[in-house]
């Protein structure tokens, strides 16, 4: 499964578990409009670390968090596994 597909599928899974619906998961979706709160993102990032073996937000030198879904996916695609 591609990184993108893994992320989208994990997002849908977490949203379902936490009882909310995501809007259409497009690259230009602003993350603060995705329905995810900080707990949702924390769970998502942990799941992705288990599935992909990377956590770009813990390994980054500077604290950063992307604004759009495209940037979020990019953070995973751009980290050498």
């Amino acid at each position: 499964m591609s990184v993108r597909l893994t992320i989208v599928s994990a997002m849908q899974q977490v949203a379902q578990e936490q009882g909310f619906k995501t809007p259409e998961l497009t690259d230009d979706l602003l993350l603060h409009q995705s329905g995810f709160d900080s707990l949702g993102f924390a769970v998502l990032v942990a799941r992705l670390e288990d599935e992909l073996g990377i956590d770009p937000f813990s390994t980054a030198d500077d604290a950063f968090f992307p604004e759009t879904l495209g940037d979020f996916i990019g953070a995973y695609e751009n980290v050498p596994a």
Binding site: S38, F41, A42, V45, A46, D55, F57, S58, A63, F65
Partner: peptide
């Protein structure tokens, strides 16, 4: 450890 909430 979580980079977002400190812990999970």
């Amino acid at each position: 450890r979580s980079p977002i909430t400190g812990s999970l």
